[in-house]
């Protein structure tokens, strides 16, 4: 049973590591494109719906849609950056580095899903809100941007963990062939990756509700924005627990 575990050091990790890096890069970009794609599409759909109701404000709606989509693209761009890093940095080939790279790819790939969908939902609600009440465009756009800035933060956590896993060999971590360390790096990536999905979507829903509300009652928009920021931040608590567990898995094992 345990024979292969003892012979880990004798395996030639060079080709395995190269293959692993490419798989990790593919995972990062492939999974990471889901969220931004769905989110931006939802945003565009709501904007088109709004224009069909209020053709007169199509210029305003298109501008708001483009701003919202630009922010919703952020998490996709994070995934692109991590995919590049995974493909073009060359670590010392070993089992732990393989675990760390696969973990980094999964972290960013899964972690970009939630924020992409969430920022898209916020943008979509903002577009709907502006089409109902075009005069509130300024208030709604500010609320949308603040909400999207908040909804991006799970993706930022995922990116941080992915970058730490990729550059960990710079801190003289993940240079050996210990199964436990390799698995803990992979687990850290999975943890923050999956853990960022829910908070991203949730804070996006909060931001969307706030955009809708700011369109209905623009004079209360300060109070609405405050509620959104507090509520959205609290809905990210579980994502932050995942971040903490990933930190523990990386630095305290």
């Amino acid at each position: 049973m345990g024979a292969w575990l003892e012979n880990l050091a004798e395996i030639d990790w060079e080709p395995v590591m190269t293959a692993g890096r490419y798989v990790a890069g593919g995972l990062a970009m492939g999974l990471g494109a889901i969220g931004s794609g769905v989110g931006e599409g939802h945003n565009a759909g709501e904007a088109v719906d709004g224009i069909s109701r209020q053709p007169a404000v199509s210029g305003d709606l298109t501008r708001t849609m483009l701003v919202g989509q630009a922010v919703a693209e952020t998490s996709g761009i994070f995934a692109l950056v991590i995919a590049f890093l995974l493909m073009f940095t060359e670590p010392v080939p070993c089992m732990e580095a393989l675990g760390a790279y696969l973990g980094g790819g999964l972290a960013m790939g899964l972690g970009a899903i939630g924020s992409g969908i969430g920022t898209g939902v916020a943008g979509a609600q903002a577009a709907g809100s502006i089409s109902r009440n075009p005069r509130t465009r300024g208030n709604v756009t500010i609320t949308m941007l603040l909400g999207q800035a908040l909804a991006t933060s799970p993706a930022v956590f995922a990116l941080l963990i992915a970058v730490i896993l990729i550059f960990a060999q710079g801190f003289e971590m993940y240079t050996g062939n210990d199964l436990v360390l390799a698995v803990s790096a992979l687990a850290a990536g999975l943890c923050i990756g999956a853990g960022a999905i829910g908070p991203g979507i949730g804070s996006g829903i909060a931001a969307g509700g706030a955009c809708d509300a700011a369109g209905r009652r623009p004079e209360a928009s300060t109070s609405i924005t405050r509620t959104m920021l507090v509520g959205g931040a609290v809905s990210q608590s579980t994502g932050i627990y995942a971040f903490v567990i990933a930190f523990i898995l990386i630095f305290f094992i």
Partner: peptide, 27 residues
């Protein structure tokens, strides 16, 4: 949990932003 998530939220976002700017700028 509140006491854990409160500091990590600020730290993660500020440190994450710092890392993103440097990594993308290098790329």
């Amino acid at each position: 949990g509140k006491a854990i998530s409160h500091p990590f939220r600020l730290f993660g976002n500020i440190f994450g932003g710092f890392v993103i700017v440097i990594v993308i700028s290098e790329l």
